[in-house]
């Protein structure tokens, strides 16, 4: 078992290491490893206008997706956890399963059908792309927050606050939100990681000027190895940063509640 686990870790690291090596290699064709050392591939990616534009579009999409997730996802998760019973709860569970049951490709196709109509001519716009990222990440946010609310035994704390005389608004601002702070931060960072790497929907839905970074990245795969590696590493680092910050936030949050400040 341990042999398999170690082999798996190698398997996990190998593509990432090769991408890193390739991004700093001068030339790499038909050799085991790249030759030479250079930072010029990163300079080229940074100075490429379509990559620059896509990079900033992606950051905007990520920002909007995170904010909307917070504004829409938290109330929805709260309503489900605090109020939903029986049939409503079941429907909520179905919603959270939808992204797996309905592939992004099919959703993208639906976007093309619905939003290229005269009534809703939004295809190719920034906001439709953001809405697409929102529906893809919203089920994740809701699932994560509902699970955290259950695990925190939020209902007990809210009941306690109620018996002490706190109104709903006071409970929300004094108890619910502070207790959920790390959960919210952690799930927003995961949403950021998911959104920044999203390709399957964006590839079909983004307009030429609102293409996100992964969509542009695909073109790089047909060019020089070093450039493709560097462009891929940029995406990898962004996703890894968001993802690792998310996990450590969650860990620190769990730890902090047990220790003095």
């Amino acid at each position: 078992m341990q042999v398999i686990a170690i082999a798996y870790l190698v398997f996990l690291a190998a593509p990432v290491l090769l991408l890193l090596l390739g991004s700093f290699g001068e030339t790499w064709s038909n050799t085991l490893l790249p030759a030479g050392f250079t930072g010029r591939w990163y300079e080229e990616v940074a100075s490429d206008p379509s990559f620059r534009r896509a990079f900033f579009t992606s950051l905007q999409i990520v920002g909007v997706t995170c904010v909307l997730n917070m504004l829409i996802g938290f109330p929805l998760a709260y309503a489900i956890q605090a109020g939903a019973r029986g049939g409503v709860r079941f429907a909520a569970r179905l919603v959270t399963l939808m992204p797996v049951a309905v592939p992004e490709l099919v959703l993208a196709f639906g976007f093309i059908l619905v939003f290229s109509s005269d009534a809703l001519p939004w295809l190719g716009s920034f906001w439709l792309l953001a809405a697409g990222h929102l529906v893809l990440t919203l089920p994740y946010t809701v699932t994560a927050l509902v699970a955290d609310m259950e695990q925190l035994r939020l209902d007990e704390y809210e009941h306690a606050a109620a018996t002490l005389g706190a109104s709903f608004a006071a409970r929300l601002s004094d108890v619910t939100l502070p207790l959920l702070r790390t959960s919210l931060i952690s799930s927003m960072l995961t949403v950021a990681a998911l959104s920044i790497g999203e390709f399957q929907l964006s590839n079909l839905v983004a307009g030429f000027l609102s293409r996100t970074y992964p969509v542009v990245l695909l073109q790089a795969f047909y060019g020089a190895t070093g450039f493709a590696c560097a462009a891929t590493v940029v995406l990898l680092i962004l996703a890894a940063l968001a993802s690792i910050t998310s996990s450590t936030t969650a860990q620190i949050g769990a730890f902090e509640q047990k220790k003095p400040q």
Binding site: P15, T190, G197, F199, F221, A239
Partner: peptide, 27 residues
């Protein structure tokens, strides 16, 4: 944390990583 990293990786990163690893002139 390390193992769940790929969950948020774009499929493109995986694809290019595997071309470098196992492609026609892969490692």
């Amino acid at each position: 944390i390390a193992i769940s990293l790929p969950l948020t990786f774009s499929g493109l990163i995986v694809a290019y990583g595997f071309i470098l690893l196992l492609g026609r002139s892969g490692f």
